[in-house]
Simulated scan of single mutants.
Amino acid sequence: MAVYGYARVSTDGQSLTAQIAELKSAKCEKVFQEKISGAQSDRKQLSRLIAALAKGD
């Protein structure tokens, strides 16, 4: 079983650093991250994360 994480912020002025640190401390093996507005439905990294999931992840 793998543990994956997803970090997202809405603007370039925001930082992913705190989210990534929390996910890594939660033992996430792979963290998918992106800077994209929450209003956008096309989140490529979220789609990659979902595609990477296997049974039990």
Rank of each mutant, 00 (worst) to 15 (best):
M1W: 04
M1A: 10
A2I: 09
A2W: 04
V3S: 04
V3F: 00
V3A: 02
Y4P: 01
Y4Q: 05
Y4S: 04
Y4V: 05
G5S: 10
G5D: 10
G5H: 06
G5I: 04
Y6K: 05
Y6S: 02
Y6G: 03
A7K: 00
R8A: 06
R8E: 02
R8S: 08
V9N: 00
S10P: 02
S10L: 12
S10K: 14
S10C: 09
T11V: 09
T11Q: 14
T11G: 04
T11Y: 07
D12I: 08
G13W: 01
Q14N: 10
Q14P: 03
S15E: 02
T17M: 09
T17L: 07
A18H: 13
A18Q: 13
A18I: 14
Q19C: 05
Q19G: 01
Q19M: 06
Q19S: 04
I20Y: 00
I20D: 01
I20V: 10
I20E: 07
I20R: 02
I20M: 02
I20W: 01
I20G: 00
A21S: 07
A21N: 06
E22R: 10
E22F: 06
L23S: 02
L23W: 05
K24E: 06
K24I: 00
K24N: 03
S25E: 11
A26D: 11
A26N: 14
A26F: 09
K27Q: 13
K27W: 07
K27G: 07
K27T: 10
K27A: 15
E29G: 08
E29H: 03
K30N: 14
K30G: 05
V31G: 01
V31A: 03
Q33A: 08
Q33L: 01
K35R: 15
I36A: 11
S37V: 15
S37I: 13
S37A: 15
S37Y: 13
G38A: 14
G38R: 10
G38S: 09
A39W: 12
A39F: 11
A39D: 14
Q40K: 14
Q40R: 14
Q40C: 08
S41E: 10
D42R: 00
D42N: 08
R43P: 00
R43W: 03
K44A: 15
K44S: 12
Q45L: 04
Q45K: 14
L46V: 11
L46P: 01
S47K: 14
R48C: 08
L49Q: 12
I50C: 07
I50N: 06
I50F: 13
A51H: 13
A51Q: 15
A51W: 09
A51P: 01
A52E: 11
A52H: 10
A52D: 11
L53F: 04
L53H: 12
L53T: 12
A54C: 09
A54K: 15
K55C: 05
K55T: 06
K55D: 06
G56P: 11
G56M: 11
G56V: 13
D57V: 09
D57N: 15
D57M: 07
